[in-house]
């Protein structure tokens, strides 16, 4: 059995090792060490998590995670939306005469991804609404 603080220390140590391996991966221009390291890292965390003898997650931490996730999504979405609009306006050029195709397409693709996020949000919202009794 493992104490909660030892688990967090292990996660921090693994994160340090992962960054180092990623650095080496970039240096030798080979993604394989990074991929293997990430898989092994996830496995070690998963196994260590099963052996913690203290509660590390409860209803309060879940509520914190829920609110944090929602706020992060909202802020990121609005930020990226404004960024996409700015890119498209920049691509259209002065008085909309000279359309920069590469930058413009990037802006429109970003908008499409943001629309996809809204669709995913609505689908998941409907699913959980149904799951919890609606």
């Amino acid at each position: 059995m493992m104490k909660r603080n030892y688990f967090f220390l292990l996660v921090a140590f693994l994160a340090f090792i992962e960054v180092a391996i990623f650095w080496i991966s970039v240096d030798i221009v080979d993604p394989l060490p990074s991929i293997i390291a990430i898989i092994i890292g996830i496995l070690i965390i998963y196994l260590a998590r099963m052996h913690i003898d203290e509660v590390i997650q409860d209803e309060r931490t879940w509520k914190i995670a829920e609110i944090t996730s929602l706020r992060t999504l909202q802020i990121t979405w609005v930020g990226l939306f404004l960024f996409a609009l700015w890119i498209i306006i920049e691509a259209l050029g002065e008085q909309f005469r000279h359309f920069n195709r590469t930058i413009g397409i990037f802006g429109f693709r970003l908008l499409a991804i943001l629309c996809g996020i809204i669709v995913l949000y609505v689908v998941l919202s409907l699913y959980y609404n149904k799951k919890f009794g609606a």
Partner: peptide, 14 residues
Amino acid sequence: LAQEVGVTRQTILA
């Protein structure tokens, strides 16, 4: 108390 009811000590404190 936290261990008895299956939550973290921080939750009881909160």
